[in-house]
Each structure stands twice: as structure tokens, then as C-alpha cells.
Write a protein that binds this DNA or RNA. Structure first.
Length: 932
RNA sequence: GGGCGAUUAGCGCAGCGGUAGCGCAGCAGCUUUACACGCUGUUGGUCGGGGGUUCGAAUCCCUCAUCGCCCACCA
């Protein structure tokens, strides 16, 4: 047994054991194992990200699940990796490069140079978060670490694109998309955050063309009027019937635009007249398609006004243009009024600038396997925890719109599409333009083109474009060949989520049927935040069914969101997120894990408070010292517990251990980790340390060697179980103690001998063992009675202000079955001299007396301290409480309906309760009488 | 406009149909040889308001209020 320091010092311990686990390959999953599989894929953090408390929460839960599963005998794969996080990473690198003065816009560097810089950045900053996860104790299989832009992974992304294209689910189209003018790229609907804002509603007057009068339109975006192509009214609105077929003169632009009618216009809103800006509003765009209106683009991709906006405005930022437009219209007397108006404005989730509806050519995906994905969650094939998220999921799935998957970025998977200019005869369809995009020359629809062993298939209807596997690095000949035919690869990259949605199987080597894939897919659990239920979870489910024919995971655990004390979301910009690494340094990884888990009930948001971590630290120290206490009693160890020598306290703690194991299993079954930590905390601190260890001292300080040894055997039994129960939560300290206490020695190699990681998970004690040890339910009541006695004595001590270090003299009479050892326990815990047994004790007037549940009386003679008044007051107060309880119980039992309708066991319970209180009252009254 | 969640002791939370609990903080005492990152005792609550169901409600139902999320193209 090694010597143990007085306080737990996490730093060296954590480093040592993590290195050991890696060296022993404890985290490596064996795809050929005969054990049942358990698998989790990590939600891949951004490759250049740093660890946040959210990650701590998320990954601690995964680690707990993984470690628990290992101990339960599963072959565990926890597959880690990182995400290239297209737009986020590119934005970070762009900012850094601009700061270094290396470029103003990425075009200055050019695609190739820029990508070099991003890769360099990734090499330098990527993987920081991986090292941080290791500090947290994450037991990921690092030999299988993946990155979404690994060559193999990229191939998966490309072949998925091709496959979906061939199925007709991916198409290219000119559409109104969410445009981020700062990043200059399209975004998906999910990447737009609607923010309620106090804005203005301008009522503008548009003069009628060729006659007097005007129409009034209302708008929140006056700058778009420069691109107006119509004014629309509802055809059934009688107020505007006279306007049908007329035209208005668009101010500032001075062109005539028609007044059209459309059902979409709500007559009840504003004036019932709407300005129509086809190129800058999704609804207006739709309307314009129907009415064949021209598209005038007045806002460019960078958010500045275009030439088409007119000389006065061209080049102005959209917000400045708004001001100027209003100014000019006011000067013309065309602003009727301005109202305060609360409305919702779409912001880019990434760059936080207002989104611009923008017309551009993009790639879209019609979601595959939607029905299967919906029913999987509805039928429980995939279970959500907490369940309520299933509703949110279904709701989103029922309103799916096509997914805009192309991004005008450089960092990411480039769209695997090559476009070719017309060079020869067109196989089918018509091509009257010189700029028609067609298939590879010479290819008919049924032919494949094989270049360097890769198959290229023609795609598209009538040969518009060619979709194929993009050229991999190391195959310049393909690229050359394609270029020779005049091909050009689509410059766009794919949405990051278009790669992450393949994560559960692409990381396992798909499309090859690898051993890993066969053993570990579908994965068991997914642990993630509800904020990415649409971005990621839903899409993974669809991809799983589409490409694997099976659900990607069986359970999804949605964590809460970590907030600060004010309830604000943790964020970098607010600076309210503490650095978990600092917390680990200060308190230890185990403490951080424990603190976070303790405050993380299933599905609730978590208000972060450093006190929780401190509590974790304190708990680790308690565990440490409880083991240290055992270490201070060397020798005398016998492996086997002798049932004949068990004290009532021994039996009690074994029963409590059994209960704790059951509680823990129940908590795990329901993914209730805060329940689990609470149960462990209570068991170990309140039951084991506060009562059992103190009681055990009665034996350990005694002279009977055999009994001492037996007590140590019980302690070892409880501690070795406890350490295992704690291991998923507190991996480091439990490993250290497992070895330090010598428990590892007693175990076979693969089952706890080398590491606690594979020690068997404690099972509840079965009936045979309970009988063998004489563990009876009554034991719990007996000890509860003793505990009450001890507390009452302590109360009296406090009442009379007797210092805790002064021993009490106690005289007792005739408790039924109290042997010398048990008497010692009471003496120790109550802080008493050896109690004197006296059948006929004549108490002094006012001498405190306690009536324990198990019968007899305990007198506390307080020579010189007796204060009849104080004792009277104490008893009176007690009596008051008891009377109140009796009244409640009597009232209930007096209700005839209660006796009639309540179940008999409840009735019985109430009667018993009343009897107990009445007995207590009798005792108190007797004591008061003695005082009188 | 729809949907979801929260509201329990000063603070953070548990309990989800039968005596209101835990941790911090507070108060009183203690160098009791595992631990002051500790020990002992203790003060705090008509469980957001109102109504209902029930013998019985913090717990189930309705309603209101406050806070927080998510979804929704009304200019």
C-alpha cells in the first residue's frame, strides 16, 4: 500500500493515468471482439475550436456512458473527430489574415493560396480541442480519430452528392436564398436567426401615372423601392378596384410600373397596397414569377447598392441607401408617415449581419428517406431523451423545404461537379446557345468514362452538366484531362452539415463494409445539444436510412444549454464562459465533471456556478480521505467477510450499498446523471462517512483483532465497490485509489487488474448473499432508531451549550438488545463517556431524558448544568410539533371518506403514524410532569 | 400567430397523487488522531395567482401571470 497525501492533488494523478490508459490501449475498440457492441460518435467540435463548458457537459456525459458500458462488459467504441466548420473556420482565418495585412479580401490571395493558409491554420490550431478533451478524461478511441476533410471522408461526401444527384434529389436552380452579405455566401434557412427588432414602417406615396392621385404603400425597407417593379393589391379589395390596370410612377427612379392584383396581398394590413420588389423579397419574387415582372437587382452580393439602383445610390451600403432614399422622398413630400414598428429581421447566425434575400444559382437537396426518418422517431426505433424533443423533430420534418447546400466559400468540400462548354454534337435536347453546358463529349447516357481507375458517369437531363467524383489530390492527370475538354469545376463548396450528416458511418469507413462499421453501426447513443436538432440530428437520421438502410443511433440524449448565473447563454462574445482548462487546473478534472453532472438534470438548462465545481473538488477530497482512513489501519486484512462477525452497522452499510447500486442503475437507465451523482453523493458522504465510518471506529479502536479485521474487510468491500460506482464520473481519482488501495491486485488482468476501467460494474446484492450476511430490512429501522437517539442527545448538548469536545455522562435503563459494541457506537457518535446501565435511575429534577424508538430511557445528568426551565422549554417545543402532527393525522383519519376510499396500506400507514406520534406525546408529557 | 419549457427556503435545484427534501449561503458550537476541501447542531417554504378533479394535490386538469427557448415569407 502506498502512502497517501493528506489532500487530493489532481494534477499529477490525472496526467499519469491518462498516459497509462493510452499506453495500455484501453480506449481502442476491437471490431472483432465477442463482447456486445456499444458505440457513440462524438459530435465533432470545430477543428479550430476551444473547449467550452458546453463541450465539458456533452463529453462528460459521453465519457460516463462509455466507461459505464465498458465496465458492464461491452466492447466500446467512442469515436472522436473534428469538423472543418466551413464558414466559421474560414471567417476566423480571413480575419487573422486581414489583421496580418496579408489580404483585404480572399480574392487577393486566390483560392489556392488562401486554402494553403487555412490548412496551415488548421495544422497549427486544429487539435487543441482534442488535447483539451484528453485533459477532461475523455476515453475516445483516438486511433480512429476523423476529420470531415480527411481524404476518405471527402470521398464519402462526394459519392453521396453523386448518388443523390443521380437519384434526382440534388438539383441546381436559380432561387431566392438567404444571403450573408458579410461572408458573401448563401445560407440554409436554419442558419438564419430571426431577431425581433424595433424598426420603422414607412408609408410612401407613389403618384399615379398620367392622372392625379397616388397610392400609399408601406415598407420596412425603403431602399428596396429602387428595385420595385409593381404595386400589388388584393383583387377582392373594393377600395382599390379603381386602380386595377393602372400604373404608378416610381419615384426617384422615374419609371412606370404596373398595379397588379394578387391574392397574397392582405387587405387588412396597412393600406392594402404592397410595393413589389421581385429581386429582394421572397414573397415578391414569387409574385413576380406569376406576373412576369422583370428582376431589377439593386443590392449586390456585398450588401452595397448596384448600378441599377441609379447613380445617386450605386456603391452605397444598403443601410446608408435607406437613409438617403427616405431623405429624398421626404424632400419630394412623398413620405406620408413613419410608424414605429416591431418586426423580425433575419440575421446570419455566423456573421450577425442582416440577411439579404438574394437571387442566385445554388445547389439544392430534396431530403431523402423522410418518411422513414419520421416514423423511426414516432415509433421509438430512435428514442429521444427527454421525449418532448420528438415533437419538435416531427414538426420540423413535416415542413421540410429543400436544403440549399452550396456555399460561396473556399474552405470545404468542393462541389464535385464539372461543367463543360459545348464542343461537339449534342446527344439529346436542344442547344441553341453557344454557352450550353453539356456532358463530357462523346459520352452517351449509358457510357461511363474511366479515367485513372475512377468511373465518371454522365448526369443531368439532356446533358446539362456532368457530376462525378471530384479529382483527388494525387491525380493531376484527371484534372488535366477534364480541363482539356474545357471542363471547369463548380467553384462552390458544400454546406458543412452536408458532410456532418454522414458522420455516424463516414467515420467508420463507409462505403466500404469495414469491420468497424459492421460491429458498431448503428451506434447506441448520441449526446448532443437540442440547438442542432435540425442542423444535425434530423439530417443524420435521414442519411442513415438513405445510405445505410438503418437508423444511425438508437438513443439521442439532448443536454441542456449551459447558462451563466444571470441565465444568459455562454458565449465567447459575452465573455461569460469560464475556461474549463482553468477550472481543471484549479479543481481537477474529476471535480469539474462531478460539479457539472450534479447540476445537469435531464433536459433542463444549466445555470453554471463555480460553487458546483468546488463541491466536486470537496467531494473528491472526501473520497480521498475516506480511503486514507482505511490506509491508516494496515494489516489485519482478510479477504473474506465473516458473516458471524458482522455488526449491525456492517449489515446496514451493506444494505445501503445495495440500495445505492440499484439507484444508480435506475438513474443510468433513464439517463438521469444528476440523480446518479446525487445518489452517490448521499450514499458515500452521509451514509458511509458520516455514520458507518464513525461507527466502525468503535471496532477499530477496540482490541478484538478478528473483529477489527472483519470490519476492515467490510470497509474494503464497500470501498472497492464504491470506487467502481464512481469511476464513470470520476475516472482519475478512482483509478489512483483503485491501485493505491491495492484492489487492482485482487483482480484478473482484463477485469480490473490493470485498470479500474474494466473492473466489473457492481451488481445489486442477490438474495443469497443477503441471507448469507444476514441483511434484513429491519436493520435499516434499527439503525434509523439509533440515529435518532444520537441526534437527540446531540441536540441536548447543543441546547445546554456543552462544547462538542466535552464528553457527556449518560445513564440508561434497559434497552432491549444492545450489546457492548453497539453501546460503544452510540457513545462514540454521541460524544459520551461509557454509558452506565442502571435499572433504577432517579433523575434529578429537570434532567434531560431521551426515549429511543427501541425502548428504555437515556438520562443525561448534567451536574451543575441542569436548567429545569430550559429543559421544559425544549420539551414544550417538541410537544408542540408532535401535537400538530397528531392533529393532522387525526383529522385525516376522522374523515369517513378517507377510511372508505383510501387503500388499506395507506390507511394502515396513517394509523401507525398516529400511534407513533401519540407514543411520543405520552413520553414528552411524562417528562414534563416529572419537571413540574 | 403557433408550440415547448420553467416558476418549490436568500441562491441553485430534487421531488411529480399519500408525513415538503438536497447542496450552497446564514446562525451556534467544535484543532473529536481520514478530511476546516472538515465535524456537530440549527433558522428559513400557505411549493407563482385563481379555479377544478380527488378521501387526499407541490404532484393531475383548466385558467391567468412572469421569465426563457423554438417554429412561422404579412409588406
Amino acid at each position: 500500500m502506498s502512502e497517501i497525501s493528506k489532500a487530493y492533488e489532481p494534477q499529477s494523478v490525472e496526467e499519469k493515468w491518462y498516459a497509462y490508459w493510452l499506453e495500455q490501449k484501453c480506449f481502442v475498440a476491437d471490431a472483432h471482439s465477442r463482447k456486445p457492441a456499444y458505440s457513440i460518435v462524438i459530435p465533432p467540435p470545430n477543428v479550430t475550436g476551444v473547449l467550452t463548458l458546453g463541450h465539458v457537459l456533452n463529453n462528460t456525459i459521453q465519457d460516463i456512458l462509455a466507461r459505464w458500458a465498458r465496465m458492464k462488459g461491452h466492447e466500446v467504441l467512442w469515436l472522436p473527430g473534428t469538423d472543418h466548420a466551413g464558414i466559421a473556420t474560414q471567417a476566423v482565418v480571413e480575419k487573422a489574415l486581414r489583421k496580418e495585412g496579408l489580404m483585404k479580401h480572399r480574392e487577393d490571395l486566390g483560392r489556392e493560396k488562401f486554402l494553403e493558409k487555412v490548412w496551415a491554420w488548421k495544422e497549427k490550431h486544429g487539435g487543441i480541442i482534442i488535447e483539451q478533451l484528453k485533459k477532461l478524461g475523455a476515453s475516445c478511441d483516438w486511433t480512429r480519430e476523423r476529420f470531415t476533410m480527411d481524404p476518405n471522408y471527402s470521398r464519402c461526401v462526394q459519392s453521396v452528392f453523386v448518388e443523390l444527384y443521380k437519384k434526382g434529389l440534388i438539383y441546381r436552380g436559380k432561387r431566392m436564398v438567404n444571403w450573408d452579405p458579410s461572408a458573401r455566401t448563401a445560407l440554409s434557412d436554419e442558419e438564419v436567426e430571426m431577431v425581433e427588432e424595433q424598426g420603422s414602417l414607412w408609408h410612401l406615396k407613389y403618384p399615379l401615372a398620367g392622372e392625379d392621385g397616388f397610392v400609399v404603400v408601406a415598407t420596412t425597407r425603403p431602399e428596396t423601392m429602387l428595385g420595385d417593379e409593381a404595386v400589388a393589391v388584393n383583387p377582392n379589395d373594393p377600395r382599390h378596384a379603381h386602380l386595377h390596370g393602372k400604373k404608378v410612377m416610381l419615384p426617384l427612379v422615374n419609371k412606370q410600373i404596373p398595379i397588379i392584383t394578387d391574392e397574397l396581398v392582405d387587405p387588412k394590413f396597412g393600406t392594402g397596397c404592397v410595393k413589389v420588389t421581385p429581386a429582394h423579397d421572397p414573397a415578391d419574387y414569387e409574385m413576380s414569377q406569376l406576373h412576369h415582372l422583370p428582376l431589377t437587382v439593386v443590392i449586390g452580393p456585398g450588401g452595397a447598392m448596384t448600378e441599377a439602383a441609379g447613380a445617386d445610390f450605386a456603391g452605397l451600403d444598403r443601410m446608408e441607401a435607406r437613409k438617403l432614399v427616405v431623405e429624398k422622398l421626404e424632400a419630394l413630400g412623398l413620405v406620408l408617415k413613419v410608424e414605429k414598428y416591431v418586426h423580425r429581421v433575419g440575421y446570419s447566425e455566423r456573421t450577425h449581419v442582416p440577411i439579404e434575400p438574394y437571387l442566385s444559382e445554388q445547389w439544392f437537396l430534396r431530403y431523402p428517406s423522410v418518411d422513414k426518418a419520421v416514423s423511426a422517431v414516432e415509433t421509438g426505433q430512435i428514442k429521444f431523451h427527454p421525449e418532448r424533443w420528438a415533437k419538435v423533430y416531427s414538426h420540423w420534418m413535416s415542413g421540410l423545404k429543400d436544403w440549399c447546400i452550396s456555399r460561396q466559400l473556399w474552405w470545404g468540400h468542393r462541389v464535385p461537379v464539372w461543367m463543360f462548354l459545348w464542343k461537339g454534337p449534342v446527344a439529346s435536347g436542344s442547344a441553341d446557345s453557344q454557352q450550353v453546358l453539356i456532358d463530357l463529349p462523346y459520352l452517351t447516357k449509358d457510357q461511363n468514362l474511366q479515367i485513372a481507375g475512377q468511373v465518371f458517369r454522365p448526369g443531368g437531363k439532356g446533358g446539362e452538366i456532368f457530376v462525378g467524383i471530384a479529382v483527388q489530390p494525387g491525380h493531376p492527370e484527371i484534372e488535366q484531362l477534364l480541363e482539356k475538354h474545357g471542363g471547369k469545376q463548380d467553384p462552390d463548396v458544400l454546406d458543412t452539415w452536408f458532410s456532418s450528416w454522414l458522420w455516424p458511418f463516414a467515420t467508420m469507413g463507409w462505403p466500404d463494409k469495414t469491420d468497424t462499421l459492421q460491429k458498431f453501426y448503428p451506434t447506441t447513443d448520441l449526446v448532443t445539444g437540442p440547438d442542432i436538432i435540425f442542423f444535425w440530428v434530423a439530417r443524420m437520421i435521414m442519411a442513415g436510412f438513405e445510405f445505410m438502410g438503418a437508423e444511425p443511433f438508437r438513443n439521442v440524449y439532448f443536454t441542456g444549454i449551459i447558462r451563466d448565473k444571470q441565465g444568459r447563454k455562454m458565449s465567447k462574445s459575452l465573455g461569460n464562459s469560464p475556461d474549463p482548462l482553468d477550472l481543471i487546473t484549479k479543481f481537477g478534472a474529476d471535480a469539474l465533471r462531478f460539479g457539472v453532472m450534479r447540476s445537469a438534470p435531464l433536459g433542463q438548462d444549466i445555470l453554471y456556478d463555480e460553487q458546483q465545481v468546488e463541491l466536486g473538488r470537496n467531494f473528491c477530497n472526501k473520497l480521498w480521505n475516506a480511503c486514507r482512513f482505511r490506509q491508516l489501519h494496515p494489516g489485519d486484512v482478510q479477504a473474506e467477510i465473516d458473516p458471524k462477525l458482522l455488526t449491525i452497522d456492517d449489515r446496514w452499510i451493506l444494505l445501503k450499498l445495495d440500495a445505492a447500486i440499484r439507484e444508480l442503475d435506475a438513474a443510468f437507465a433513464g439517463y438521469k446523471f444528476s440523480d446518479a451523482t446525487a445518489a452517490l453523493y448521499r450514499f458515500f458522504w452521509s451514509e458511509y462517512c458520516d455514520w458507518y465510518v464513525e461507527a466502525a471506529k468503535a471496532i477499530l479502536q477496540g482490541t478484538d483483532a478478528a473483529r477489527r479485521a472483519n470490519t476492515l474487510a467490510v470497509i474494503d468491500f464497500v470501498l472497492s465497490h464504491t470506487l467502481r460506482l464512481f469511476h464513470p464520473f470520476l475516472p482519475f481519482i478512482t483509478e489512483e485509489l483503485w491501485h493505491g488501495m491495492g484492489y487492482a491486485k485482487d483482480m484478473p488482468d482484463g477485469q480490473g487488474g490493470k485498470t479500474i476501467m474494466f473492473a466489473p460494474w457492481p451488481k445489486p446484492l442477490d438474495e443469497d448473499i443477503k441471507r448469507h450476511y444476514g441483511l434484513l430490512h429491519e436493520t435499516l429501522d434499527t439503525i434509523a432508531g439509533r440515529q435518532k437517539l444520537v441526534i437527540e442527545i446531540r441536540n441536548i448538548r447543543a441546547l445546554y451549550k456543552i462544547p462538542a469536545n466535552k464528553k457527556l455522562n449518560i445513564v440508561y435503563n434497559a434497552p432491549a438488545d444492545i450489546n457492548p459494541e453497539e453501546k460503544r457506537v452510540i457513545e462514540l457518535l454521541a460524544g459520551a463517556e461509557p454509558m452506565v446501565h442502571r435499572t433504577a435511575h432517579e433523575p434529578a429534577k429537570g434532567e434531560p431524558v431521551v426515549h429511543p424508538d427501541f425502548g428504555g430511557k437515556f438520562f443525561i445528568p448534567l451536574a451543575g448544568l441542569v436548567d429545569a426551565q430550559a429543559e421544559k422549554a425544549r420539551l414544550a417545543k417538541e410537544l408542540q410539533k408532535v401535537e400538530a402532527e397528531i392533529q393532522k393525522a387525526e383529522a385525516k383519519l376522522a374523515n369517513p371518506n378517507f377510511a372508505d376510499k383510501a387503500p388499506p396500506e395507506v390507511l394502515q400507514e396513517h394509523r401507525q403514524r398516529l400511534a407513533d406520534w401519540q407514543a411520543k406525546r405520552a413520553q414528552l408529557r411524562a417528562s414534563l410532569d416529572e419537571l413540574a
